[in-house]
Design a protein around this nucleic acid. Structure first.
Length: 908
DNA sequence: TCCGAATGCAA
DNA sequence: TATTGCATTCGGA
């Protein structure tokens, strides 16, 4: 379990300044506080083995507490000049020691520590908080320790209770009562620790004490009553925030090695001679090796019109060693893999590229083939050397679509860790409606034109594998990819940081979801190929029969799969009426048309049947068995995380999110998705998720009420719209209501509803009017979201995901209305997507933590599919819904329905 | 050989 | 003239 070590730098800085003697260097610069804080950091480093750490300082300027309470800390004398002078050099030194440093404007160090603590706990990490400030004991809980490195005091939950007389969760109540003279927050007059503990022991909580304030006797009781108005504010002031927006993620805080060159310079300036000797003791060579790290922070300015950086090819061990050392010391490394295949499960490494500083990158060729190939370093040995770096969470990596690179490395037995950033996801979160391939990103954000893949490998049938590309040419292309990725990150990440909700979405949902998807894709799903082969044969026979009959009816042979030929037969030769036309003006032969014609003519009915079977055979029965991976014996879909503009996932190669379910024949395909021996398939889907989100977003009282009481929402809608009691609703009425409810989610028009229900437009408008009359909150919401879209150009999900709607102000009515429908649909579809991603992250973390071997295998928008060992079934069935429902607290309850079976059809 | 259009599968 | 996707087939370029 990773450990996060958080140091309250400001608290120590003040204490060190006042506690330590007035040390100065020969120039007279004060150095005592610097030395004090640094020695504390060194002690912590040896006391606690932490993979992640941060030293947090208060930033200059006001904080939100000053807005709440102008007197906050107002009594403090101005900072002594000798202290102020030490801040900047201390910050430099802290970073040189390998400590990520944080100072967030508008937020106190306490709140940064509180927020990081929460984030770490959510990931199941352990946290050690080092501070001289007792207020922070309020953060102590299982997995969180408070240590005072100056007094060497360590407190866990029991320790806090023993020291203060109240448990950590009551510390804020305690502080509100006692007050905090350090921060100028007044407490109840004459109420000290003794009285506060007595009251809290008697009444349990501050709220309860306040409720019973009239029962408290004595002079101090009177003081309490006088202070009642202030107590809520007092409590707010002493409560450490755990939800502030941070410019960094946990993954940005790996413990780094110290930067010896920078340290040397600083120690020399401060004249810390003992520590200088320590540095020298480690040898000049080591200091030299890491000198390059200092360059990390500064990029050379790009030459105008040319971005071709200094790209090197790694062909010998000396160059490799130099780069390996750089990778080890770098705060963040962009890397990219070149492979033999676009199929992630089949791809083998051809080479890798790395970039640490913009404009400088290296390509490491490993498996290029051909007559003029230079000697390449041996793949296995290189991977063995790099494996610890790839698998270290402390070494932060950056990439463009790292899920793919993680697959490639996994194919070689390496589990990529330390995934800190992904420019694909950054771009997706910032502008989901734009393209996210690297060539487009480079053009859009950097104004650079990159080498297209097809320039290197050609395209179509003449395309060659990357292993056939000449190494020089490969270096230009591959090193550029790593270089551009790094530059994109430098551009996109600051943009994200200015939008805290989006930064949180990226950090807390998209990046963690990527790891879940990687594991799901690698797990794959078992299918019964024999069953599908049987079905294919059967479908083939019925198709031949239908085709023969169709040709008989047409009086001539024709290709049933060709809409063009079919149209000529139906509307030309047989003279059937044209019902509607396609976008290009051709008479349409789609299902709706054929359905309509089937009432009066025999051929369309045959065609409908033929179409249905042909689809099942070619897309599913024939295709799926061909997609079985020979190595794993399973089908591995690929989930795209940056395709759907609403935030949904997309599945491809094969698409496992559109497996049939509506017809009996179709369900036989689904039945071929099976569990292995001694396992079952478990399907868990969110019930009515988008309608529930609509209730939450609109706040409509009737809709909220229906969900709160667990009603059948379509029946409830029918009762409202048709003016009957729920018990009186007929199945026909319920069907109408269901269509209306679905239509609402899609921003339906009267026309659309009329078509769907087979009624006239005026009647449909009547139902819509009645719906909105009964659910005025929904009507108001629809207007609100359209207005918001028009004003801002985008709409948002509950979690702040943005969907831009460039056409919302279009001149063309049709385009504008389409954008308005998207504006209504996107927040609901997008929020559902956010929720299930959070659920996937939660379930993926929970299963192994609970000692279970069950695995997530598929996600279908509102459904998670798991493969579960039979002996784990009861636990999974019992706990999975809570895992999925616990991801958000909406105004409506979330409901998850679980199904179990030997195959997906039975389970769903 | 490539790509748009038409069609249909899912939530 | 209902939202978001992906795959298949045809057929013109």
């Amino acid at each position: 379990m990773p450990v996060l070590l958080l140091v309250d730098g400001s608290s120590y800085l003040y204490r060190a300044f006042h506690a330590l003697p007035d040390l100065r260097n020969s120039k007279g610069e004060p150095t005592g506080a610097i030395r004090g804080v640094l020695s504390m950091l060194r002690r912590l480093e040896s006391d606690y083995k932490a993979e992640f750490r941060a030293c947090v300082f208060d930033a200059k300027g006001k904080t939100f507490r000053d807005d709440w309470y102008p007197e906050y800390k107002s009594h403090r004398p101005p900072m002594p000049d000798d202290l102020r002078a030490q801040i900047e050099p201390l910050h430099e030194a802290v970073q040189a020691e390998g400590w990520p440093l944080l100072a967030v404007e508008g937020v106190e160090a306490d709140d940064v520590i509180g927020t990081l603590t929460r984030l770490a706990l959510e990931r199941g990490w352990e946290v050690v908080i080092s501070t001289g400030d007792k207020d922070l004991t309020q953060l102590v809980r299982p997995g969180v320790k408070w240590v005072n490195t100056m007094s060497e005091e360590v407190l866990d939950e029991a320790g806090v209770a023993a020291k203060f007389g109240v448990p950590p969760e009551r510390i804020v109540d305690y502080l509100a009562l006692v007050g905090d003279t350090v921060d100028n927050v007044p407490g109840v007059e004459k109420c000290g620790p003794k009285t506060a503990v007595k009251w809290l022991t008697e009444y349990g909580t501050l709220d309860n004490l306040v409720a019973n304030a009239d029962k408290v006797g004595g002079k101090v009781g009177e003081n309490l009553r006088k202070h009642l108005d202030f107590l809520p504010l007092g409590k707010r002031l002493v409560t450490v925030a755990t939800d502030v927006a941070l410019p960094v993620a946990l993954d940005d805080l790996p413990a780094r090695d110290d930067d010896k060159a920078a340290l040397r310079a600083l120690y020399e300036r401060f004249e810390f001679r003992g520590w200088l000797r320590d540095l020298d003791g480690q040898g000049a060579a080591a200091a030299l090796a890491s000198a390059g790290e200092a360059a990390v922070a500064d990029d050379p300015p790009a030459a105008p019109g040319a971005h071709r950086g200094a790209y090197v090819t790694i062909l010998d061990w000396a160059t490799f060693d130099a780069w390996a050392a750089k990778l080890d010391g770098a705060a963040l490394v962009a890397f990219d893999t070149e492979t033999t295949s676009l199929d992630p499960m089949a791809a083998r490494l051809v080479g890798m590229s790395f970039a640490i500083v913009a404009g400088e990158a290296a390509y490491l060729p490993l498996a290029h083939r051909g007559p003029d190939v230079p000697h390449q370093l041996p793949l296995d040995e290189v991977l063995a050397r790099l494996k610890p770096w790839f698998e270290s969470a402390a070494h932060a990596k950056l990439g463009q679509n790292l899920k793919y690179d993680a697959h490639v490395l996994a194919n070689h037995g390496i589990r990529l860790a330390g995934i800190a950033h992904d420019t694909l996801l950054q771009s997706y979160v910032l502008e989901s409606d734009k393209s996210h391939d690297m060539d487009s990103l480079a053009k859009r954000h950097l104004g650079l034109t990159t080498i297209p893949y097809t320039d290197v490998c050609g395209k179509g049938a003449k395309q060659i594998g990357f292993d056939e590309v000449a190494v020089d040419r490969a270096t230009e292309y591959a090193a550029e990819d790593a270089d551009i990725t790094l530059r994109l990150h430098r551009k996109l990440w600051p943009q994200l940081e200015t939008l805290p909700a989006l930064a949180a979405l990226y950090r807390d949902i998209e990046l963690p979801a990527m790891r879940v998807l990687l594991d799901m894709e690698r797990t794959g799903v078992l299918i019964d190929a024999f069953l599908l082969a049987q079905q294919s044969e059967e479908l083939g026979r019925r198709l031949m029969e239908l085709e023969r009959e169709a040709h008989d009816l047409a009086g001539q042979p024709f290709n049933l799969a060709s809409p063009k030929q079919l149209g000529e037969i139906l509307f030309g030769k047989l003279g059937l009426p044209v019902v509607k036309k396609t976008a290009t003006g051709q008479p349409s032969t789609d299902e709706e048309v054929l359905q309509q014609l089937a009432d009066d003519y025999p051929l369309p009915k045959l065609l409908l049947e033929h179409r249905g079977f042909a689809k099942l055979k070619s897309t599913y029965a024939d295709k799926l068995p061909r997609m079985v991976n020979p190595k794993t014996g399973r089908v591995h879909t690929s989930f795209s995380q940056a395709v759907a503009v609403t935030g949904r996932l997309a599945s491809s190669d094969p698409n496992l999110q559109n497996i049939p379910i509506r017809t009996a024949e179709g369900r036989r395909i689904r039945a071929a998705f099976i569990a292995p021996r001694d396992h079952v398939i478990v399907s868990a889907d969110y019930s009515q998720i988008e309608l529930r989100i609509m209730a939450h977003l609109s706040g409509d009282a009737r809709l909220l009420d229906a969900f709160a009481h667990g009603e059948d929402v379509h029946r409830a809608t029918a009762a409202e719209v048709f003016g009957v009691t729920p018990a009186e609703v007929t199945s026909e009425q319920r069907r109408y209501a269901k269509v209306i409810n679905f239509g609402l989610i899609y921003g339906m028009s009267a026309h659309g509803l009329a078509k769907n229900l087979g009624i006239d437009r005026a009647a449909a408008q009547g139902w819509i009017d009645r719906y909105f009359a009964r659910y005025p909150g929904v009507a108001a919401y629809m207007d609100r979201v359209k207005a918001e879209a028009k004003e801002r150009g985008y709409v948002e999900t509950v979690f702040g995901r943005r969907l831009y709607l460039p056409e919302i102000r279009a001149q063309q009515v049709g385009r504008r209305q389409a954008a308005e429908r998207a504006a209504i649909n996107a927040p609901m579809q997008g929020t559902a997507a956010d929720l299930i991603k959070k659920a996937m992250i939660a379930v993926h973390a929970w299963l192994p933590a609970a000692g279970l071997k069950s695995r997530l295998i598929l996600q279908v928008h509102d459904e998670l599919v798991l493969e579960v060992p039979r002996d784990e079934l009861e636990r999974v069935r019992a706990e999975l819904p809570a895992q999925m429902c616990g991801v958000a607290d909406l105004a409506v309850p979330l409901l998850v329905e679980v199904g179990v079976g030997d195959n997906w059809d039975e389970a769903h």
